[in-house]
Simulated assay, not measured.
Amino acid sequence: MGKGMDKLTPELVELLNGEVLVSLVTIDKDSKEADLGVISWVKASSDGTKVKFALGHKARSAENIQAEPSVTLGLIGAGSCYAVKGKGTVSDIKDGTMKYRIVTVDVESVDDVIFYGGKITTEPAYEKTYDADLAKKLDDEVYELLKD
């Protein structure tokens, strides 16, 4: 796929619109050090210029993005590993089964960052270990919020 793209390819848009694990790197608002989290409620715009994701309303990552909007999203899939960089904006609190904040990232660059000669042959998989009905309810609610 190459380096230095300014938006997500259609293949990466499709990856982000499935159930995928995404690494989230923000700048800690106090220490100014890189802070790593993992998210799964993620959607990409069809044109590949925006990525939206949901966080709990008290998430440290949301506070970090409000203080310093630089965000890096790490993706594993579509045969490689990608760093998606951009600037994030954080919504007001959205009320539902739980309280959420929606982060919208304006994509600035997409780089293939896998080591030379590497290729992803198996994508990461995960399962939700809490109540299945609650998981479905939360997923349905959040993905509806991410549509906007």
Rank of each mutant, 00 (worst) to 15 (best):
K87R: 11
W41M: 12
P124D: 14
D111A: 03
K52M: 04
K128I: 13
S23Q: 14
K3P: 00
M98G: 00
L16W: 12
V51D: 12
H57L: 00
S80A: 13
D112P: 00
T121M: 07
K137W: 03
L146I: 03
T122I: 13
T89W: 00
A132E: 15
L36E: 08
L75W: 10
D140R: 07
E33A: 09
T89D: 02
V13P: 04
K119E: 08
I27E: 05
D139Y: 15
P10R: 09
K50H: 09
I102R: 01
Q66W: 09
G88N: 09
D30E: 14
V107L: 04
G56P: 01
G4L: 05
R60G: 01
L55T: 12
Y100E: 09
L73D: 10
S40M: 15
W41S: 11
P69G: 02
M1P: 06
I65N: 02
S31W: 06
A132N: 10
K32F: 05
K128S: 03
K29E: 14
T26Y: 05
S91P: 02
S70C: 05
L55A: 09
A132P: 14
C81Y: 06
T122A: 10
N17F: 10
A44Y: 06
A44M: 08
V51Q: 11
K94E: 12
K147I: 00
S109R: 15
S23C: 09
Y126R: 04
A135D: 15
S45L: 11
G77D: 12
K32P: 00
Y82W: 15
A78N: 11
I114S: 10
D95H: 11
I114V: 08
K32L: 11
I102H: 01
A44P: 05
A83S: 14
K119N: 01
V38Y: 08
H57D: 15
L12M: 07
T49E: 15
T89Q: 02
V103W: 03
S31G: 05
G74T: 15
K29R: 14
E33R: 11
N64A: 01
E144Q: 13
S46W: 08
M1E: 10
T49W: 07
D95R: 10
A78H: 06
R101S: 02
E141F: 07
H57P: 02
E127G: 06
K50M: 07
I39G: 04
V110A: 04
E19W: 10
E63N: 04
L55M: 10
T129G: 06
Y116C: 00
G117W: 05
